[in-house]
Amino acid sequence: MQQEYKSKSYSHVFKIILILIAVLGLGVAVRAMVMPKTFGEFGHYRGSAIEDEMNRPIRNGTNASCLVCHPYIRQMHLEGVHNTVSCEFCHGPMADHVKDGKVIADLPMKQGEEIKKLCLRCHNQIIRARPKESIKMISMPQHLEEKHVRIDHNCNQCHNVHAPLMWVNQAKAIVGAGGDSK
């Protein structure tokens, strides 16, 4: 007995195809909506991403930028053997100090043991990996003993941190060229 059906024999297949096309069309439409405008401008990426990266805020200045406002330090620092040491290495990034041309906060000045620790970051002889042509090395506490100073002396009691040899040389000049720094 031939049964009667309301739908045609292929109607479901037809609907499947319609649904697939609709999904595909929806996908294309949504893609067009959410696609970043500059995508593909230069390659398979968002072109304006370059600009975003370019506009990342600069947080560290340069020694030149710091020393503009600190003329006294400037003279010392640039004349001394520490002239290649970055201001911001010890004091922190300029962005924490100046904003829109205005001073917003003071940067920290290292004190006491912190200073010693900073000095020894570079000058500690016991860390042997440091090339001699790059830097002068000292051993602690032998250095203090050699110079006949008290063992609890801090580095900055003899060495100005900005120009480490300044006071040493001045002392030498006073005592005479052959004299010890003490």
């Binding site: 049964q3 059906y5 309301k6 739908s7 024999s9 479901h12 609907k15 499947i16």
Partner: peptide, 11 residues
């Protein structure tokens, strides 16, 4: 069933 009731041999 995608609204189809057709289960004829052809279908």
């Amino acid at each position: 069933t995608l609204g189809s009731d057709n289960v004829s041999e052809k279908s």
